Amino acid sequence: MKATFQVPSITCNHCVDKIEKFVGEIEGVSFIDVSVEKKSVVVEFDAPATQDLIKEALLDAGQEVV
């Protein structure tokens, strides 16, 4: 499964690193693409990962998800 999250609070590479760390810890996540320019995060994943778990990880990383 693939999901795109709009994350307007992404401003720098530190944000990218933190997002990759938090989302990458979720079992089932196979790909993460964070774009500072587009302020988006694209995640490819399989169970047990879910969109809700990914959104929670983004929030835990200090990001706003819309």
Rank of each mutant, 00 (worst) to 15 (best):
M1Q: 13
M1S: 12
M1T: 08
M1D: 07
M1K: 10
M1F: 12
M1C: 12
M1L: 10
M1Y: 13
K2R: 11
K2E: 06
K2N: 07
K2D: 04
A3M: 09
A3E: 07
A3G: 05
A3R: 04
A3I: 14
T4M: 10
T4H: 11
T4G: 04
T4P: 04
F5Y: 08
F5K: 00
F5T: 03
F5M: 02
F5W: 06
F5V: 03
F5H: 02
Q6I: 14
Q6V: 12
Q6S: 11
Q6P: 04
Q6K: 11
Q6L: 14
Q6G: 08
V7G: 03
V7S: 00
V7P: 00
V7T: 04
V7A: 04
V7I: 08
P8K: 09
P8V: 10
P8A: 10
P8C: 07
P8W: 07
P8M: 09
P8D: 06
P8F: 08
P8H: 08
S9G: 10
S9K: 05
S9F: 13
S9N: 09
S9Y: 11
S9M: 07
S9D: 06
I10F: 05
I10Q: 02
I10L: 09
I10E: 03
I10K: 00
I10H: 04
T11L: 08
T11C: 13
T11H: 15
T11Q: 09
T11W: 15
T11K: 12
C12Y: 09
C12F: 07
C12P: 07
C12V: 07
C12A: 11
C12T: 10
N13C: 14
N13Q: 15
N13S: 12
N13W: 13
N13A: 12
N13I: 15
N13R: 14
H14L: 15
H14C: 13
H14F: 12
H14P: 04
H14I: 15
H14S: 14
H14D: 15
C15M: 11
C15P: 05
C15H: 11
C15R: 06
V16S: 05
V16R: 09
V16M: 05
V16K: 12
V16W: 07
D17M: 12
D17N: 09
D17C: 08
D17T: 13
D17V: 15
D17Y: 12
D17Q: 13
K18G: 02
K18R: 10
K18Q: 09
K18V: 10
K18W: 07
K18M: 10
I19L: 04
I19W: 03
I19G: 02
I19R: 00
I19Q: 00
E20L: 15
E20T: 14
E20C: 10
E20F: 15
E20N: 14
E20G: 07
E20Y: 15
K21Y: 10
K21V: 06
K21H: 09
K21L: 07
K21R: 11
K21F: 11
K21N: 05
K21W: 08
K21S: 08
F22G: 04
F22D: 03
F22C: 05
F22M: 07
F22L: 10
F22E: 04
F22Y: 10
F22S: 08
F22I: 10
V23E: 02
V23L: 12
V23P: 00
V23C: 03
V23R: 01
V23A: 02
V23Y: 03
G24D: 03
G24F: 10
G24M: 11
G24S: 11
G24P: 00
G24N: 08
G24K: 11
G24E: 04
G24Q: 07
E25D: 11
E25M: 13
E25C: 07
E25R: 15
E25H: 09
E25A: 15
E25P: 06
I26C: 02
I26F: 02
I26L: 10
I26N: 01
I26K: 01
E27S: 09
E27D: 10
E27I: 12
E27M: 10
E27F: 10
E27G: 06
E27K: 09
E27H: 09
G28E: 02
G28Y: 02
V29L: 03
V29I: 07
V29P: 00
V29E: 00
V29K: 00
V29C: 03
S30A: 10
S30E: 07
S30K: 15
S30G: 07
S30P: 01
S30M: 12
S30T: 14
F31K: 13
F31I: 08
F31Y: 13
F31E: 05
F31V: 07
F31A: 13
F31W: 13
I32G: 00
I32Q: 00
I32H: 01
I32F: 03
I32L: 06
I32S: 01
I32P: 00
I32W: 00
I32R: 00
D33W: 14
D33H: 14
D33E: 12
D33Q: 11
D33N: 11
V34E: 03
V34A: 07
V34C: 09
V34K: 00
S35Q: 07
S35M: 05
S35G: 03
S35L: 06
S35W: 06
S35D: 12
S35R: 05
S35K: 05
S35Y: 04
V36P: 05
V36S: 04
V36A: 05
V36R: 03
V36Y: 06
V36N: 03
E37S: 12
E37D: 09
E37C: 07
E37N: 06
E37Q: 11
K38N: 13
K38P: 02
K38Q: 08
K38C: 12
K38E: 10
K38I: 05
K38F: 14
K38R: 13
K38A: 10
K38M: 12
K38L: 12
K38S: 10
K39Q: 10
K39R: 11
K39N: 07
K39H: 09
K39V: 04
K39P: 04
K39S: 07
S40L: 14
S40D: 05
S40F: 12
S40K: 11
S40M: 15
V41W: 03
V41H: 02
V41N: 01
V41L: 05
V41K: 00
V41S: 03
V42E: 08
V42R: 08
V42C: 08
V42D: 06
V42H: 10
V43C: 04
V43H: 00
V43Q: 03
V43E: 01
V43F: 01
V43L: 00
V43A: 02
E44H: 15
E44R: 12
E44A: 08
F45G: 02
F45N: 02
F45S: 01
F45M: 00
F45W: 13
F45Q: 01
D46S: 14
D46G: 11
D46T: 14
D46V: 14
D46F: 14
D46K: 14
D46W: 12
A47V: 09
A47R: 09
A47Q: 09
A47L: 12
P48S: 01
P48T: 00
P48F: 02
P48Y: 01
P48H: 03
P48R: 01
P48E: 01
A49G: 03
A49D: 02
A49K: 02
A49V: 04
A49Q: 02
A49E: 02
A49W: 04
T50P: 01
T50L: 03
T50I: 02
T50M: 03
T50D: 04
T50W: 02
Q51W: 15
Q51K: 14
Q51S: 12
Q51R: 14
Q51C: 15
Q51A: 14
Q51T: 12
Q51Y: 15
Q51G: 07
Q51F: 15
D52P: 05
D52Y: 13
D52I: 08
D52G: 08
D52W: 13
D52L: 11
D52E: 13
D52V: 09
D52A: 13
D52H: 11
L53Y: 05
L53R: 13
L53D: 06
L53W: 05
L53F: 05
L53Q: 13
L53A: 13
I54M: 01
I54L: 05
I54S: 01
K55W: 14
K55M: 14
K55N: 05
K55T: 08
K55S: 05
K55Q: 09
K55P: 03
K55F: 13
E56S: 12
E56C: 10
E56H: 13
A57H: 03
A57Q: 03
A57W: 04
A57T: 04
A57F: 03
L58W: 02
L58Y: 00
L58S: 02
L58G: 01
L59Y: 09
L59G: 06
L59E: 11
L59M: 11
L59I: 13
L59F: 10
L59T: 09
L59R: 11
D60Q: 15
D60S: 14
A61E: 02
A61W: 07
A61G: 04
A61S: 08
A61K: 03
A61L: 07
G62V: 10
G62D: 06
G62M: 14
G62W: 10
G62F: 14
G62K: 04
G62C: 15
G62Q: 06
G62T: 09
Q63N: 05
Q63K: 07
Q63Y: 15
Q63H: 15
Q63P: 03
E64C: 15
E64W: 13
E64G: 05
E64N: 10
E64K: 11
E64I: 15
E64V: 14
V65W: 08
V65P: 07
V65G: 05
V65M: 07
V65E: 05
V65L: 07
V65Q: 05
V66I: 11
V66H: 07
V66F: 08
V66Y: 11
